[in-house]
Amino acid sequence: MNQFIGLKDGGSLNYNLYSEENSDKGTIIFTHGLTGNKFQLTKYINEYKKEYQIIAVDLRGRGDSSVQLADSSIETHAKDIIEVIDSLQLKRVILFGYSMGAYISQKIAGEHSSVQRVILLDGGGHVDEEGKKMVYPSLGRMEHVYPSCENYIEATANVYKNLKVTVDPLVIQAIQYECKKKEDGYGNLSNPELIKQDFDSFYLYDVEKSARKNDKPTLLITGEGNLSDRPLFTKSNYTALLKEANIQVILTNENHYELAFNLQSDLLGNIHDFLKGEFSNEK
């Protein structure tokens, strides 16, 4: 069910609400990555909506949410999600964040008492300059104008295929949703400069402080598959997180994008065990 929530500063967040009848069992808030939208993590949502209420958000500047703030960053997006938690009076919250969504989730977990567990899907650690070299070129699709949404979908699907993503109907749904009418054609309406600003805020993010403040049970899932010559986040990027006693870790051979878009059958069971407090693994 598609919903909008008004924010105190006049902005709004769009989100999908699933399995409202399961709200007494807890609510999982899914927060997508830098250039994603509320459909990016659908394969995970479909698994856990059987037992939990699910909220999947469009961050500002993505999907049908309002435009980004001039000072857009991990910090501002975290404040928005906290507003959602408070406005909906959610009491038993599980945060599931992918890439930038993981940073946002880690920050919220250290600041909100309603959060019970946190899942970080390949994100939340230090970022190095090599990471910027891998991410910046991928933002070009936000600047391009296409004759039709079909052209946009085809071009974006080809990019994902090159990243080893299986382009199935759920991936097409996520791509199609972000295609909007522009002044002179079709494409992604996100502001590329503000998206870059969001990514640059990774470098300002205090990983150590956020990790220390988050005392909730946390599951970090890392993608060790290469994007070019290396993973987006290497094990050394996660050094600060790995020092925390409350964090459990799953290492995978998938790359950053495969983790988000491809069905991860083995992971689904491990996450289910973590949600029930039954999963354990050595760092």
Rank of each mutant, 00 (worst) to 15 (best):
Q3E: 15
I5W: 13
I5A: 10
G6K: 15
S12V: 08
N14D: 13
L17R: 13
Y18K: 05
S19F: 12
E21M: 09
S23N: 09
S23H: 11
D24E: 14
T27S: 09
T27C: 12
I28Y: 02
F30R: 01
T35P: 04
G36W: 04
K38W: 02
K38T: 00
K43C: 03
Y44Q: 00
N46Q: 13
K49Y: 05
K49T: 05
K50A: 10
E51K: 10
Q53T: 05
L59F: 13
R60C: 11
R62M: 12
R62I: 06
R62G: 09
D64G: 06
V67S: 15
I74G: 05
H77W: 14
I82N: 00
V84K: 01
I85W: 05
Q89W: 03
L90S: 03
L90M: 13
R92N: 14
V93H: 04
F96Y: 12
M100P: 02
A102C: 10
S105D: 09
Q106R: 11
A109V: 05
G110T: 03
H112P: 01
S114H: 09
V115G: 07
Q116W: 02
L121G: 03
L121F: 08
G123L: 11
D128F: 11
E129M: 12
M134P: 05
P137M: 08
G140R: 13
R141H: 11
M142V: 01
E143T: 08
V145D: 09
P147H: 02
P147T: 05
S148L: 08
C149L: 11
I153W: 01
T156M: 12
V159S: 14
V159C: 10
V159G: 10
Y160Q: 11
N162S: 14
V165C: 13
Q173E: 15
A174L: 07
I175V: 11
Y177C: 04
Y177P: 03
Y177H: 15
Y177E: 12
K182S: 02
G187D: 04
L189T: 01
S190D: 08
S190L: 07
N191T: 03
E193I: 04
D200Y: 13
S201Y: 11
S201E: 08
F202Q: 04
Y203H: 06
L204F: 09
Y205L: 08
R212F: 08
K213V: 00
K213W: 03
D215I: 10
K216L: 06
G225H: 05
S228Q: 10
R230D: 07
P231M: 07
F233S: 00
T234E: 15
N237G: 03
T239M: 09
A240P: 03
L241A: 01
K243Y: 02
K243W: 01
E244V: 01
N246R: 02
N246F: 05
N246Y: 05
I250P: 00
E254I: 00
E254M: 10
N255S: 08
Y257R: 09
Y257P: 00
F261W: 10
Q264T: 06
D266C: 06
L267A: 08
L267Y: 07
G269V: 12
H272W: 12
D273M: 15
D273C: 12
G277R: 00
G277C: 13
E278Y: 15
F279W: 12
F279V: 12
S280E: 15
N281P: 02
E282N: 15
K283Y: 12
K283D: 13
K283E: 12
